[in-house]
């Protein structure tokens, strides 16, 4: 066992096939992936819906056994020592699964009991975690009265009740308004500062760029790229992107005129993306061709463009 002190999650040839073993019609959600997550890191898994992110997370959470491959977490084998591993994980699932029959504080108390923690420890911890997630004033309220952002924060507080070494977050900010997202990100930063290892899936590029030290891009159950956000942008895209929008009737003609003006061109349902080292120059070239876009925008390349390049699809499709 190498590096067990620094490598907290080690997946080799990890596969997940749903359906009965040996069943040819089984659906392959995760198709042989390798990756490692180190202590203290914020590690992201990026991909469109159905790319295999959630299946990967469920295997790491030890709630879904891998079909093949090896998965070691905190030095234990995920298959043999699931309960030991789960005792040291915090899980924030994609859908809020808060106990709606209990109050905010009761949710934390009973969840801690599932870990075998004493009531005394839990009373103290629940107060501290409600403070941490800014829910102290809601402590004795019914869960039904919480907003979406508050529910998600309660789910995070709940995931921290056992003081986990790794926190798994499956699309933590999906469905939240911008303000709620920013508050959540800030709390996640704080956790990272405190040395907690974060593993999150997302299909928001800004989220990945903000939070993740390192990430993998998944497509159709496979990892298609791995690295730090800035590294991936440098490796897979040119410096800038020119975004053009056209009137519906002119789209095809205008798009054809733009061919050859940039090194790479992506046609999205609502706009045309031209990858280039100098956006302004490309825009001038576009104008010289007699192309009249409704709007034109030059921006820096982002992870979104990495994803487009790698998979030929937009993330939010």
């Amino acid at each position: 066992m190498t590096d067990s002190s620094t490598v907290l999650i080690d997946a080799q040839g990890l596969r997940k096939v749903y359906g009965r073993p040996g069943d040819k019609a089984g659906f392959t959600a995760v198709d042989g992936i390798d990756f490692q997550v180190r202590r203290g890191e914020a590690f992201g898994v990026l991909g469109a819906n159905g790319a295999g992110k959630s299946s990967t997370m469920r295997m790491i959470a030890c709630v879904s056994p891998p079909t093949a491959g090896s998965l070691r977490i905190l030095g234990y084998d995920s298959g043999a020592d699931g309960a030991k591993i789960r005792a040291r994980l915090g899980v924030v699932p994609q859908d809020d699964t808060i106990d709606t029959e209990l109050t905010v504080r009761e949710n934390l108390l009973i969840y801690g009991r599932y870990f075998g923690l004493s009531w005394k420890v839990l009373r103290e911890r629940s107060t501290r975690l409600l403070e941490f997630t800014r829910l102290s004033e809601k402590a004795d309220d019914a869960v039904a009265t919480l907003s979406g952002g508050m529910r998600r924060r309660l789910t995070i507080a709940r995931a921290l009740i056992n003081e986990p070494e790794i926190v798994l977050l499956d699309e933590p900010t999906t469905g939240l308004d911008p303000q709620a997202r920013h508050l959540l990100w800030e709390r996640l930063f704080q956790l990272k500062q405190d040395g907690v290892t974060l593993l999150l899936t997302t299909h928001y590029m800004d989220e990945a760029e903000q939070i993740c030290d390192r990430l993998v891009v998944m497509d159709a159950g496979k990892i298609v790229a791995e690295g730090a956000p800035a590294e991936l942008i440098a490796r897979y895209t040119l410096r800038e992107v020119l975004e053009l929008r056209f009137a519906p009737g002119e789209r095809q003609i205008m798009t054809d005129k733009c061919r050859g003006l940039a090194e790479r061109m992506e046609e999205l349902p609502d706009r045309l993306l031209l990858s280039t080292d100098n956006g302004e120059e490309t825009l001038s070239a576009v104008h010289r061709q007699g192309v009249q876009p409704l709007t034109a925008l030059v921006r820096r390349s982002s992870l979104e463009d990495v994803f487009l390049t790698l998979t030929g699809r937009s993330l939010l499709d």
Binding site: F115, N162, V196
Partner: peptide, 26 residues
């Protein structure tokens, strides 16, 4: 906040009785 120190974390496998505790709470 949690510092990720595993030592002395009094966590042990949950038991069936905690389900009764949940229901009593409800």
């Amino acid at each position: 906040m949690p510092t990720g120190a595993p030592a002395g974390n009094p966590v042990r496998p949950g038991r069936a009785w905690t389900m009764v505790e949940r229901n009593l709470m409800i």
